[in-house]
Simulated scan of single mutants.
Amino acid sequence: MLVDSNNRLVADTLEGEWNDKLRILANAREERERAREHDQFILDKAVHERLVAMTADFKKLWADPDTPNRERKRLLAHIIEDVTLVKLPAKGTTKVHVRFKGGKIQTLTTKSPKSSAQQITTQPGVVELVDRLLDDHVYSEIAELLNQQGYRLGEAGRRGRQDARFTPLRVAYLVHQYKLRPRHDRLRERGMLTKQEAAVRLNVHEQTVTRWAKHGLIASHASNGHHCLYEIPDGDLPQKQCSRWNRLVDRAAARVQSASQAKLSTEDERGVV
């Protein structure tokens, strides 16, 4: 508008060319937007089809037994943003809030996993059986009996692991863990005596008590380890000077023979009945 009137024709020409360039620019921008929208539509459709195919492939790949766990973890990392765990101790369950990459959130409820201590917890029935066996057996015998009957330790035993077999040390641990009465206390309640007490009762040396028990003159009962308690009969007590080998053997043989005859007599009576 400030151009000289003598040059107005030139100004009009320049203004026309400028307006033409502006129209060309506007048309180019519109064409670019239309092309972008079209490309975006094609891209979205292709991505959608690919995602559908990936979903089917994902299930096959996940269920494939040849897929290692590390690859499964990588697959999850591509679709899951994060996971929040909320443990509910009172109910023994855990709420799992899963947030996917696309923003969707899914909540699952599952049982809480067992702790290491719970996984090796022995069944109550086994503990009760150990309690009964302690009346007549030592730890090594109890472990052998449990293994023979097919009992195993906790979760590891249910998985068939060989190291889940019972050992004397594990039986001793059960006795301590569940506060079962030790075999020593059970024998004492039945009137068994220690070696020192038996020696005083019989008025002999402690080594004599050991020899008499070895040859069956008095009964000895193992109380685990290398310790024994001794059962002193009410009558027919061994005499102090009867520890010669021939007299010991004769007396032990007589006791064995008497016990065998009594057993046979009992079996005959049962057979008659």
Rank of each mutant, 00 (worst) to 15 (best):
M1C: 03
H137C: 07
R255P: 03
V86S: 09
L180C: 12
A259I: 01
Q241T: 01
L193Y: 03
T84Y: 14
K104W: 09
R8A: 07
R255V: 03
Y230D: 04
A117Y: 05
A252R: 13
A164E: 12
K240W: 03
G154P: 14
V171G: 13
G154K: 14
G157Q: 15
Q148F: 15
L180W: 02
D236W: 10
N224D: 08
E17D: 09
H48T: 12
Q241E: 04
H38I: 05
N7E: 14
V273W: 11
R161F: 09
E128Y: 11
E33D: 03
A143F: 08
E144N: 06
T55D: 01
D268H: 07
K60V: 12
Y139F: 07
D163M: 08
P233W: 10
L202V: 02
V138P: 00
M54C: 03
K263P: 00
L51G: 01
Q241F: 02
L75E: 03
R158C: 09
W62Y: 14
R247V: 03
A35S: 13
Q123R: 00
H137Y: 04
L169M: 11
Q239G: 04
G150H: 09
E71M: 13
L43V: 00
V209N: 01
R34T: 04
Q40G: 06
E33I: 08
D135G: 01
E30R: 01
Y151H: 07
Y139N: 14
K114W: 08
K240C: 00
S223P: 00
L76N: 14
I105T: 14
Q106G: 04
H137L: 08
R23K: 00
L85E: 06
R244C: 08
D64Q: 08
K195F: 02
H78D: 10
N224M: 00
A262C: 13
W212V: 06
D250Q: 07
